[in-house]
Every structure is written in structure tokens, then in C-alpha cells.
Amino acid sequence: MFTKPHEVHLRWSDLDPNFHLRHSSYYDLASQHRMDMLNSYGLTTTVMQEQYFAPVLLREECIFHREIRADDKIHIRLGLKEVINEGTRWTLVHQFTNFNNKRMAELTVDISWLNLKTRRLARPLPEIVKALYNSIMSEIG
């Protein structure tokens, strides 16, 4: 299950010399989408700093199905694939689709949490897990 589609606004700097979406832009757009969702549910960078934790990527992979051109209208949706060990690790999937709902790319990330004091992977506080899970599930509705 995926969240409602959110429109992606492509910038000139997102394009490669062929006027296609540059491969690394998919990763940047997905990362920004994740942070926007967390922020909208109160899980801001300020909260993370106060609690001494931050998300950390363990794996990131993108499968490209169709090229995205400069003038294409694109949506991105986020899906929760797996939660492991009471929220210690999350697998999320970003789907890039056009306005006709054709899949353009699929980006999968494995995320864990870093304790900023110890610089080691750690289990986030239960309220953090709840906020992340609720932010995704409420969007899926």
C-alpha cells in the first residue's frame, strides 16, 4: 500500500545533458519526500536533535522503468514494505509515476536510526516509531 500521490516539481538542476531526470535526482527527491512527511507529523530535525537520534540509510536502490523528461508531470508515493525489530529498521519504497499512473521508477531504502551521542545504531523511542508509522499509515488511509 502506498501514500496518496504527491506532485514532484522538477528543477533545471535535476536534469542530465539529455534533458532527462538525472539518476541521482531520484534519490534526492525521495529523500526530500521522506523528510517532508516526517516534518508534517511533527518529527522534525529539531525533535531529532533534542532526542539525539537521526535516520541513517543502510541501503538505497532505484530501478528505472521509463525515462522522465524535463516537462513530464510526476508523482511520488511512499510505501511501507517492512518494519523490523520494533522500528529499529524500516524498508520503504518510493514509486515515481506519471499523471497517467504509469510507473516510471521505484526506489527502495532500508533505514535505521543512529544515536548521535554514541554514533551507533539504536532503537528509537516508542513515540518516534509511532510518529513515523502513523505518518505513513495516515497517508495511505
Rank of each mutant, 00 (worst) to 15 (best):
E7K: 11
Y27M: 11
T118P: 10
M48H: 05
D110R: 14
K73V: 03
E50G: 08
Y52G: 01
V56P: 05
W90I: 04
R34I: 07
P55N: 01
E127F: 10
L121I: 12
R77I: 00
R103V: 06
L132V: 15
Q95L: 11
I74F: 02
R123K: 11
E139L: 12
E7H: 07
A122C: 15
L114P: 08
T45P: 07
V129F: 09
Y26N: 11
N85M: 05
A70V: 06
L10S: 07
C62M: 07
N39K: 09
L125D: 15
N101S: 11
F19R: 15
R69F: 03
E67W: 01
D36E: 06
L78M: 05
H6N: 14
W113R: 04
L38I: 09
E60N: 08
I84W: 06
H20V: 09
T44H: 09
D72K: 01
L92A: 03
P124F: 00
L43Q: 08
S40T: 14
Y52F: 11
I74L: 06
A70S: 10
T3L: 01
K102N: 09
H94Y: 03
F19Q: 12
S138T: 14
T3Q: 08
S13K: 11
L114Y: 11
G42Q: 09
N85E: 14
M104H: 00
T46Y: 14
P17A: 04
R120T: 15
R123V: 02
V109I: 08
N101R: 14
Y26M: 02
S135D: 13
C62Y: 07
F53E: 05
R120S: 14
P17C: 01
N100S: 15
D14E: 04
E60S: 11
N115Q: 07
I128G: 08
E82D: 13
M137Y: 08
Q95C: 10
L10K: 03
V47P: 05
K130Y: 00
R103H: 05
P17W: 01
N115K: 03
I74T: 03
T88D: 10
G42T: 04
A122R: 14
V8G: 13
L21T: 05
I128H: 11
E50S: 11
E7G: 00
R103P: 00
D28Q: 13
W12V: 13
R66A: 00
D14L: 00
E7R: 15
M1V: 04
P124V: 02
F64N: 00
L107S: 01
A122N: 09
A30T: 02
S138G: 08
S31I: 13
D71N: 07
G42Y: 04
D14P: 06
W12M: 13
K102G: 01
H9Q: 11
S112Q: 02
H65Y: 06
I140H: 00
D71F: 05
T97K: 00
Y52D: 12
N18E: 12
